[in-house]
Design a protein around this nucleic acid. Structure first.
Lengths: 207, 207, 207, 207
DNA sequence: TATGAATGAGTATTCATTCAT
DNA sequence: GATGAATGAATACTCATTCAT
């Protein structure tokens, strides 16, 4: 190996290290988030989380500052993804309804495919983090609300209380995490499709 | 002495005692359940629950055996009420859709009016209680599923995966507890009505 | 027992309770302070402190909020006593020297007789408590400094840097805790007497 | 090759290495000792010590076996120096008082000038090291005691309990580390001078 | 019935230390 | 010589639970 190539390697090392570190950190958060969803934030102990990653409890603290930080980051991870989806859908669809359908489908896909889960334990976060998470959630809700209102304006969506509509829709999504298991009888695609249909035209057969 | 007259006798000590005890016990469970919903099972301490009832922590143990028992009973209380509603609706409505609408409306009412809340922390229950609660939840889901299937059979409800449909509907209900506050801008009746409409015909305007 | 006397008892109960509680709390702090002095703040574990009081670790937390609180209160306890001594000596003695001798003697007595000890671990306190303790220490040092300066003014004390003089004197006191054991060969009275003589006229024999 | 020339040979690798190693090792111990004095043994973490030397925590272990070893060596370093001072003063001075004055002045100089500090945390050492340190401290105290007793014998020092006298004197020295900052308002020389005066003739003005 | 006092079991967290590279 | 990563052991602290009164 020439000195030059060795030098390059040495230059790459720190980047590799950092990349590795970040990858592992994300793995910790994802794995912990899954445990939180399955067993609840308090029922999932750090020991348990560590073991499921083949690490020891103390090693977790090399990647995260505290258990609460994991919870916080797990929340943020989802909201980042949702922000992305909101943006991705922005230019598409004509009517408010079409836009809403696209976004709602993406949300359902995210939850079934990407292993991301909407966590509900917000009270376990400290004041500041709690506020941040509520803000991020609010941002998503407002994005959806805007689509609903746009739909009401262009007559693609029925007039109703927009807030209640949005909560109705988001509730169904939240509950998804409780019952859906990847690799189960029904595919994520099918669920996303049915969710979009259900929220659009409901369960009733038109007469 | 007839049962009716017994009911009226305030001076009937033994009975009174028991009635009082039971009333207080229910109050403990209701109050605790509210705290669990608001703050989460683990974040709500026994001290906190006691204080909000004007009691001391130790006094709670006169009414309940353990914190877990409270959680269990709080679950059961809701499922008892839901069973009741399922029964109450049984004779009513013609089509599956109509029956489903009636029941769903009743469920929404229960959550907004009666101070009852669907708790999600099942993992904090011990094996036996967990199983019991899951059975009770399953029973409700099956009751709803039956109505959905009946509706599909009598063509009042669109063909689709019944399970997914039910989870979609139940999810929206579960989320209600997170955002709805009694005495807020929107009345429980209005919410119930909109929820029923939404689940029936969706958000899309027919073209 | 008459109802009246019973009533009186009931009235006394809370006071007794509170008095008992406070007494026990002080016992906890005193005992812990002794352990801190002997073994150092970090080497003395809560378990150890509890055991030496015939309690369990968790019981300590009924009386104090945290280990740090104990350290803080132990500091304050001493400074309260020293403030008292400063006040008690105020009217006595004519010259600055006489006043200083009286106060210094009292300080030495306090350390040998009352089981109070000057703790040095200030860095283990959080910012706020640290500041408070430093303020209290400063207050005592200033009181002593004033006497020294008064003595220099009335010519009972030799001119020199007052600060250094005070630190010299306080240092000897602080070290007392390290080597003096109650019930040892020398009585506290003798030590106090010799300390006063030593600081006044030094070790040198006048020629 | 003579020992002298060996000393001078900068290119003598193995020796150089060892000298460098030892120099670095001493730097580690000195820096750590300073941190121990400022923040306390337990409050000063290995990470912190390493950082202040521009090293990483793990690198420290190339120079020392354990944190406790640092504490031990830091103690020993001071006692070695004090032994040296005791020896240096041995031939000088006539009376016990004169000898004591010389030694005490040297001690004060050492603490203000040389960056050496008397550490008090002995309990954090293991049994064997603890014993060693106590022995070394005892040796110094005995050396001082001998001078005091010699002074009492030759009438240059007042009769009193020699032990108490020594502890009084050593206490003032120990406390020096707490309040003296190099480069402060008062020079080390001035402090040494005043300390010697204070211990000799006290604060009182002869009348 | 109710409470103050006490406990046991559990949990997050820290930190000195090790080791492969 | 030096470091990033990982560990084990210890420790403060919390909280549901108990019990004598």
């Amino acid at each position: 190996m020439s000195v030059t190539s060795q030098h390059k390697l040495a230059e790459n090392r720190p980047f590799d290290r950092e990349a590795q570190y970040n990858a592992k950190r994300r793995a910790v958060i994802r794995s912990a988030a899954a445990a939180f969803r399955r067993r609840g934030y308090h029922n999932a102990s750090m020991t348990e989380i560590a073991k499921s990653l083949g690490l020891t409890k103390a090693a977790l603290y090399y990647y995260v500052k505290s258990k609460e930080e994991i919870l916080f980051e797990a929340h943020i991870m989802v909201y980042d993804k949702m922000d992305e989806l909101v943006k991705a859908v922005r230019g598409q669809g004509d009517t408010g309804l079409e836009k809403l359908q696209l976004l709602y489908g993406e949300f359902a896909h995210m939850l079934t495919r990407d292993g991301l889960a909407l966590l509900t334990d917000i009270d376990s976060l400290n004041g500041e983090n709690q506020e941040t998470v509520l803000k991020r959630r609010g941002k998503i809700e407002r994005a959806v609300t805007r689509l609903v209102e746009k739909g009401m304006a262009d007559d693609s969506i029925k007039k109703a209380d927009a807030k209640v509509t949005v909560f109705f829709l988001m509730g169904a999504l939240n509950w998804l995490n409780v019952w859906y298991e990847a690799g189960g009888r029904i595919s994520g695609d099918d669920i996303a499709q049915q969710f979009v249909a259900q929220m659009s035209v409901g369960v009733a057969n038109p007469t």
